[in-house]
């Protein structure tokens, strides 16, 4: 986009960009290259690493056990993204069309959870959902259940915890794209005879696509790499790629396989996102 505006390189621009280039190079690119190198290495039994060109680490993923975990991870990440969209869109829509004062206060409420650590918030769910927790007491008090029921340490609890954790990442970009929405377009649509339903699907929703795309990507990527929620809310019974990678690094002392798994996950995510953006339309990304 910058190129379109015809601005070439200048010493000033290069100077301004050099800190960030240095930063990303040192803290993003170098570790990434290290992981690429490790993924072709051979891990010593006690954690050392012999570099080389060993494709064995990648071949191991063909093990049905690991393919199953990869597939499960993608399913959970997609479901998380869809649920966040379904829950987040009405919320973002509601907030975006309030008066300025209300808008700012409501969006502040959406961001409040970020003030505390994710682990603390997820652990709070453990206490709420546990056998003798608040949720079970409430259900029994209301006469809905008769004794404690199992609400936690199931794949459903994992999904719930992930939707909870990532919902703000969906709401914020949706809000940003809806907030700048020109209300006169909606009025024009209705003046021209479209009902509210039509107006939404033909005018409002398409114009909010940049927010939908950005929100989906922001939720999908971390969801696919999640490992805290499956541990805390899944009782480690719903293994995801993040857990598998963590185990290779921390328990199995197999950094080579752990690196290969990380690379495979990264490539799968990249392909999925390219496919998604192509499908939904890249040009729309530039509208917002």
């Amino acid at each position: 986009m910058a190129k379109d505006k015809g601005k070439g390189w200048s010493p000033g621009l290069a100077g301004l960009l050099s800190p960030v280039t240095f930063w990303l190079g040192l803290f993003f690119l170098a570790p990434l290259l290290l992981i690429v190198a490790y993924s072709f290495g051979t891990a010593g039994v006690y954690g050392g690493m012999k570099l080389g060109f060993n494709t064995n680490n990648y071949a191991q993923i063909a093990d049905p056990l690991y393919l199953k975990i990869l597939f499960r991870t993608l399913v959970i990440a997609v479901l998380t993204t869809l649920l966040c969209l379904v829950l987040g869109y009405p919320l973002a829509y509601f907030i975006a069309f309030r008066s300025r004062k209300w808008r700012n206060n409501l969006i502040l409420l959406v961001m409040i959870p970020f003030w505390s650590s994710l682990i603390i918030r997820v652990y709070a769910w453990v206490v709420i959902l546990s056998g003798n927790g608040i949720a079970n007491h409430a259900l029994q008090f209301l006469g809905i259940t008769n004794g404690p029921v199992n609400l936690i340490f199931t794949p459903k609890a994992v999904l719930m915890g992930m939707v909870y954790s990532y919902l703000p990442f969906m709401v914020l970009p949706l809000y940003a794209s809806l907030e700048s929405f020109d209300v006169s377009l909606k009025e024009a649509s209705q003046d021209l005879g479209a009902n509210r339903w039509h107006t939404f699907w033909r005018v409002t929703f398409p114009l909010s696509m940049p927010g939908v795309i950005a929100g989906s990507i922001l939720v999908f990527i971390p969801a696919a790499g999640e490992f805290v929620v499956p541990q805390l809310l899944g009782g480690a019974k719903t293994t995801m790629m993040g857990n598998l990678i963590q185990q290779q690094f921390l328990d199995a002392r197999n950094w080579a396989f752990g690196s290969a798994l990380s690379m495979i996950l990264a490539v799968v995510l990249l392909v999925a996102i390219i496919f998604y953006v192509r499908r939904v339309g890249t040009d729309k990304l530039e509208v917002g």
């Binding site: 039994v45 056990l65 199953k68 975990i69 499960r72 480690a236 019974k237 293994t239 598998l244 185990q247 290779q248 328990d251 199995a252 002392r253 197999n254």
Partner: peptide
């Protein structure tokens, strides 16, 4: 054999 153990445990948990 650490890795054999690791794979077994992953299989059990999955």
């Amino acid at each position: 054999a650490t890795r054999t153990y690791e794979r077994i445990f992953t299989e059990v948990k999955s």
